[in-house]
Write a protein that binds this DNA or RNA. Structure first.
Length: 411
RNA sequence: GGAGGAGUUCCCGAGUGGUCAAAGGGAGCAGACUGUAAAUCUGCCGGCGUAGGCCUUCGGAGGUUCGAAUCCUCCCUCCUCCA
């Protein structure tokens, strides 16, 4: 029994930032094992954007681990809360979304979340189910349980308040609604990023008000984006989407700064602490080449989202392009038709723009001047060059290291 | 309701009558190098033109002026303070 608890704990605690409270969690596990009753583990996702990225998967992975330990995952689609917008970590008010947008987003969210979760052991609920039917009376009753001072204890609210940056009353309501979700589904555990700490704690408090045992709050570190600086987010453009093609993911992982690699290992793979420590040490001692470690990381991540084959292929493509400096097997095609061809010739600048390799003539010209353009094996140096279409049919045109187009002439 | 402040090129941000397509930083792209699309260094970074040059841009619309991102008028948006 004790060993069982320890075993589960080890998995659960992997990579976590904080557990409130750990002793409570142990008790819950004990009871769960004792009565063979799985824990109800809550994760709320607000469908505020159509795609999920690796940042979201940190917490999804944790939920998956709970599932693998036999617990029940309860995924709350925050279709109602999305309309308010979580103020966590924000310095400004969020733009509000329409019901239609939210519905669309929720759909893709689900599909993508199941790249990680086991659908068999997941319960999905939309929080509009209970939040939507609350009456003003109910809301008054809920809000009466919390004080303004308590709200302002929260770091981001405090900062905004002190910095004279507006906070709407609606935003104050957000944590309360999220807390109410926990009451509604009787959560034993709630997962979230560290920025969710306050919201998770509110859940505990509200559950107590409703005479429920308070949920254990487990927070996961926030994943830093591929720029290595800001947190991963779509709006900052430093993200890797879970639906991106394997080759793209591979490349993006290879482009993360070395110094965040270990964090990625910790948060995006299910390797044990020991295994990760080992990798870290070997890199430090010079036994393991960081680029190899990064390759492995990329493969593990792709394997989780796709499968082993795709991971292998992605690596091969990468090798082809960067090691052998060759075009990949599959190259986007660019079909040229009559209108840009004059007397059987086409201007190189035009070709670059038409194929989408350059945004404008000026840019294309600059690229050529910088020696970034190749047609077939030949580097192009003259921006005024006119190419015979006979010579370039089926050839590959390349911009920089990694952008290729195969030319097809349509007659 | 009253008073004040702000809106600049993808983002941040400098710029208060000509030398402004607009400093600086970031992002992006390219080149060199490498262990990688890391790091570092260098270049490019509104559009059109082979080029001289031309065109469009500084919240919007007008106006003053030989000339405006910069001055004036009106409008729009955002923010702060007082109530």
């Amino acid at each position: 029994m004790e060993r069982d608890i320890e075993k589960q704990l080890k998995v659960i605690l992997q990579g976590t930032e904080d557990v409130l409270l750990l002793d409570e969690l142990k008790e819950k596990l004990r009871e769960s094992i004792d009565k063979k009753k799985p824990l109800r583990v809550k994760l709320g996702l607000d469908p505020t954007a159509p795609d999920i990225h690796l940042g979201h998967t940190v917490v999804l992975n944790k939920l998956r681990q709970f599932q693998d330990l036999g617990h029940k995952a309860i995924l709350i689609i925050g279709d109602y809360t999305a309309r308010i917008g979580d103020p966590s970590g924000r310095s400004t008010i969020r733009p509000r979304l329409s019901a239609g947008e939210i519905k669309e987003n929720a759909k893709t969210y689900m599909e993508q979340a199941f790249k990680i979760l086991d659908p068999e052991r997941t319960e999905i609920v939309e929080n509009s189910r209970w939040l939507g039917s609350l009456k003003l009376e109910d809301i008054l009753s809920l809000t009466s349980k919390f004080t303004v001072a308590r709200m302002l204890e929260r770091e981001d609210f405090k900062k905004r308040f002190q910095g004279n940056i507006p906070i709407t009353l609606m935003e104050f309501l957000y944590p309360i609604m999220q807390a109410y979700d926990s009451v509604a589904i009787k959560a034993d555990v709630e997962l979230g990023g560290t920025d969710q700490r306050f919201n998770l704690l509110m859940g505990r408090e509200l559950q107590k008000e409703f005479s429920q045992p308070p949920q254990t709050a487990i927070t996961m570190p926030i994943l830093v984006g591929i720029d290595g600086v800001e947190k991963m987010s779509k709006s900052l453009g430093n993200y890797i989407g879970v639906t991106e093609p394997p080759e793209e993911i591979f490349g993006k992982i290879m482009s993360i700064p070395d110094n965040i690699m270990i964090d990625y290992y910790k948060l995006l793979t299910r390797l044990s602490n020991e295994e990760i420590k080992k990798i870290e040490c070997e890199i430090k001692e010079g036994k393991l080449n960081p680029s190899i470690a990064k390759r492995n990381l990329a493969k593990i991540i792709i394997e989780n989202l796709y499968n082993k084959d795709d991971a292998e292929k992605a690596e091969q493509t990468f090798n082809r392009i960067f090691k052998q400096k060759k075009a990949p097997d599959e190259v986007k095609e660019c079909v040229l038709s009559g209108k840009d061809i004059k007397d059987g010739k086409i201007w190189i600048v035009k070709l670059l723009v038409d194929s989408g390799l350059a945004d404008s003539n000026s840019q294309a010209r600059r690229l050529i001047e910088q020696g970034a353009v190749k047609v077939g094996e030949d580097k192009i140096e003259n921006p005024n060059l006119e190419l015979n279409i006979e010579d370039i049919d089926q050839k590959i045109i390349q911009k920089g290291k990694r952008h290729f187009r195969k030319i097809l002439i349509q007659r």
